[in-house]
Design a protein around this nucleic acid. Sequence first.
DNA 1: TAAAACAAAATTGCACGCAATACAATTGCC
DNA 2: GGCAATTGTATTGCGTGCAATTTTGTTTTA
Lengths: 143, 143
Amino acid sequence: MEDKYAGLKLGNQLCFPLYACSREIVKKYKPYLDELDLTYTQYITMLVLWEHGQINVKELGECLYLDSGTLTPLLKKLETKGWVTRQRAKEDERVLIVTLTEKGKKLRDQAAEVPAKMSCCVKLTPEESRTLYTLLYKMLGDA
Amino acid sequence: MEDKYAGLKLGNQLCFPLYACSREIVKKYKPYLDELDLTYTQYITMLVLWEHGQINVKELGECLYLDSGTLTPLLKKLETKGWVTRQRAKEDERVLIVTLTEKGKKLRDQAAEVPAKMSCCVKLTPEESRTLYTLLYKMLGDA
DNA sequence: TAAAACAAAATTGCACGCAATACAATTGCC
DNA sequence: GGCAATTGTATTGCGTGCAATTTTGTTTTA
């Protein structure tokens, strides 16, 4: 006798632990990011900027899977805090270029400790972490 | 020569693909859930109710890793739509019991097709899905 | 038993996410 | 050149998430 509702059980969902895990981990970042006056979304935005120094909103959105509705107000906050500047590209006025300031670059040194602190919170073996990483990017790649 | 900032690369974060994947999958649910007039969070709430019929806010929050700040307004919306009722427990007036209505129970039949529709979107093999599921719950368990 | 401690929801305030829309600049096409 | 289609951001509105606080009800304890 099949349960026609089996697919609707919370325990049979793949999406739910993904959703719950994501929020739980972000929550664990909070105390460390609070020290830097960064939210999680602002943090991953800064990660991109620390790597690239300069990037426009469209490319940033592609990196982070976020759109201008999320990024525009967020980038204005980062600008207010003095970590980035926002200016239009001369060759195409539609494009907004986000650039790290000196102050923003310095923040990187404080942030450098965050990943090590976080790694203690994740109770997976290095191999499990790699497997998880690979599977997640496989899903994302097909998204 | 080590890169002291290697840990800060977006590509070296385990959290980021988790966060991005979660949002991408929820986005894929949207067209199917729109047909049912449900958001994703409302959907997983209904999953719990379809399984249990009745549950209080605290227990619901433990199931979903959500607190009353999120659940209270959400449950009021489900009540407005006529899918659940909200009433205080007689033995302890602090406890609010959420109960499925007949209309709410009927919604389950429409929702029954959602998991099958979604499974087409996930490009992982059954084995990969199981591995991912196990790893995510391992992380959640230690959370 | 009255006050203190505790517990469950609700409220408040802030920061996303994201769909939908608006707007301005650029490109393509005739 | 001129106009339509396209592109890149910004804006708006709604629904979360969550920390912090408040409210209401219950239990513990002096």
